[in-house]
Design a protein around this nucleic acid. Sequence first.
DNA 1: TAAGATTGCGCAATCG
DNA 2: TCGATTGCGCAATCTT
Lengths: 150, 150
Amino acid sequence: MSRPSQAKQPTPDHHGVSVIQSQSHAIVAPGLQQVPQLVPANTSAGGGKAAKMKKPSADKESDEYRQRRERNNLAVKKSRMRSKQKAMDTQQRVNELKEENERLEAKIKLLSKELSVLKDLFLEHAHNLADNVHPPAASVETSVTSHVGN
Amino acid sequence: MSRPSQAKQPTPDHHGVSVIQSQSHAIVAPGLQQVPQLVPANTSAGGGKAAKMKKPSADKESDEYRQRRERNNLAVKKSRMRSKQKAMDTQQRVNELKEENERLEAKIKLLSKELSVLKDLFLEHAHNLADNVHPPAASVETSVTSHVGN
DNA sequence: TAAGATTGCGCAATCG
DNA sequence: TCGATTGCGCAATCTT
């Protein structure tokens, strides 16, 4: 999130090439002969000599390289796990909010009904006053509590 | 989601091997020489003869193969786009539900207040009755409407 | 500059 | 058989 960088660029074609892992982990896919072995050209970096170059030890199959790759693979796995977890959490959040919503809607319905009842009683009472009639207050209380049932 | 299959197995090491794409799209990574070219062994399938096998035209670099790969790559891209879109939609849903929730909470607060006012008026009136006092109904109506402001 | 985190991409195994 | 998914590794970038 919050990474607008890689925006809309057509993705500058990178790699598209891979090398056999052989050795250590990464058992070669069954049905494939362990052949050739691709080797990267150690060119570039520095003046232009095509020899060994020291710093950018980007040599394939080198310890440096393999270690970096392995660490990155772990990081990738970790990152993806987080990503999936986050997605699940978000989905869970949606469910919780939905429930909360229903709960609130129900409460609103209840309060509205209570209010409606009280208002009706008020009107009724107002009429009674207008007609100069005075029914016992007890009956009023009873009506309210029975309807509200709070 | 919902695919317990590949469950907890140590991942039956597949591939880990790749072949240079060369040709058509897939520009080789800069700094790499276009070398060897890995070739799969067309073994297996059928009796056990190591020759050409007919059906499982799983030959690498073959038309069949490249076409299938390309189609799959498209499908993958499509699938991933959907996945991301879904995630964004879910996040959006969360935001909407949150807003809805606040709206409902506010409404509940308002209704509760209205109810509170009306109940207080009821109590006050009851006391008036008990004290045999009868204030004009007009004042009551005024109070209610001003508080409710509906 | 180094190292971990993200992200796009292609491959292969599966699923449906 | 074929598209849809998913785990995985690579490389380019971004973030720290």
